[in-house]
Computed example of a mutant assay.
Amino acid sequence: MPRCARVKTNDAIYHVMCKSISDTPLFRNDTDKDMFLAYIKKYQQKYQFKVYAYCLMTNHVHLIIDSNGFDISKIMHGVNQSYAQYFNRKYKRKGHLFHDRFKSIVVKDDRYLVTLSAYIHNNPIAMKEYRECPEKYKYSSLAVYLGIRKDPFGILDEGFIMAMFSRNVKKARERYYKFVLTCSDVKVKKFIEFEDYQGEYRSNRIVLKRQCSPQEIFKFVEENLDIDTSLIYLKHSRKAKEYRAIIVYLLRCFCGYTYSEICKVLGDITLSRVAVLFNIGFELVNCNSTYKNLVKKFLNEKVV
């Protein structure tokens, strides 16, 4: 039977569910869970998506992801493939780890969004030790929502949902926790009343424009790095290599181009070389002081 086409839009928020194959545990210990979240962080840095909630259980994962204009399939393919390779290498196994494709459902409105977050945060109650205190489970974002601990990986944007309860942080935490306790089933019909309080939480969602043309990318690089982009075609030049890598990174992230399409833009370059340049570009804009503000500046100009 052919697979059904996945429902996707560039500006959607998704409930993403990943499950391990058969009886294989997805995570054997906390180190595995840490590694999965580390891959979320890695690809978040690459593709600039947002995470509103998460919960990692023994054989499945729940995520609320704001694709922020990027392709959710590319995001999850990167995360799941990287984790599966890590898992198989660590435990000396072969074959698939995840059960089929990841599942994703488009979140259509705010009321479903907050109820979904509560449902996800209630997952730990399936374990006896967390039945009365799901907020104590380490691999759920609920504790971050409630201010019990900080987000250890820096992947979470809890303010987006919390602002729907109150802009005052203390009130939002109190109301959200009460709401979570009422929502042990995703089909729950009881919703809270949203109230507008002045305070510190702000719920302003901005979606990145991902339809930039290659010409826009080249122009941006020329203007901000003060170079003639024709120089990127020079071989045996370290600077040309760096500029080429940054252009590949921007084309991939903000034009949504595939490696094949980037090959056509740059010409006389292989798929494997584009993949290498993408990773070099990622390292440059995140670790090299010369380029560390480049993406931030690009985002400021290109958000919608």
Rank of each mutant, 00 (worst) to 15 (best):
A143F: 06
A143Y: 05
V144G: 00
Y145F: 14
L146K: 04
I148L: 15
I148M: 12
R149D: 02
R149V: 11
R149C: 10
R149F: 06
R149H: 07
R149M: 07
R149L: 04
K150G: 06
K150A: 10
D151G: 02
P152K: 11
P152Q: 05
F153W: 14
F153T: 00
G154R: 08
I155M: 05
L156C: 04
L156F: 07
F160G: 00
F160Y: 13
F160L: 10
I161P: 00
I161V: 10
I161W: 06
A163Q: 04
A163Y: 05
S166K: 00
S166G: 04
R167T: 04
N168D: 15
V169D: 04
K170W: 08
K171E: 14
K171S: 13
K171H: 09
A172I: 03
E174R: 04
R175P: 00
R175E: 11
Y176E: 02
K178G: 08
F179E: 01
F179D: 01
F179A: 03
F179V: 03
L181S: 08
L181K: 14
T182G: 03
C183T: 11
C183M: 08
C183A: 07
C183D: 01
V186F: 13
V186L: 15
K187E: 14
K187F: 14
V188S: 15
K189Y: 07
K189P: 01
K190Q: 14
F191V: 07
F191A: 08
I192S: 03
I192N: 02
E193S: 13
E193T: 12
E193C: 09
F194I: 12
F194Y: 12
Y197D: 14
Y197A: 12
G199P: 05
E200K: 12
R202W: 07
S203K: 07
N204I: 05
R205M: 07
R205C: 06
R205A: 05
R205I: 08
I206E: 15
V207Y: 08
L208N: 14
L208W: 03
K209T: 12
K209Q: 10
K209C: 12
R210C: 11
R210E: 10
R210N: 13
R210F: 06
Q211D: 13
Q211I: 11
C212Q: 06
S213D: 12
S213E: 15
P214V: 03
E216W: 09
E216C: 10
I217R: 00
I217S: 01
I217E: 00
I217N: 02
I217K: 00
F218Q: 05
K219E: 12
E223R: 09
E223A: 09
L225K: 03
I227T: 04
I227H: 02
I227M: 07
D228V: 08
D228I: 05
T229I: 13
T229E: 03
T229F: 08
S230W: 03
L231G: 10
L231N: 12
I232C: 06
L234C: 13
L234I: 12
L234W: 09
K235M: 10
R238V: 10
R238N: 12
K239N: 14
A240K: 08
E242I: 05
E242W: 09
Y243K: 01
Y243T: 03
R244C: 13
R244V: 07
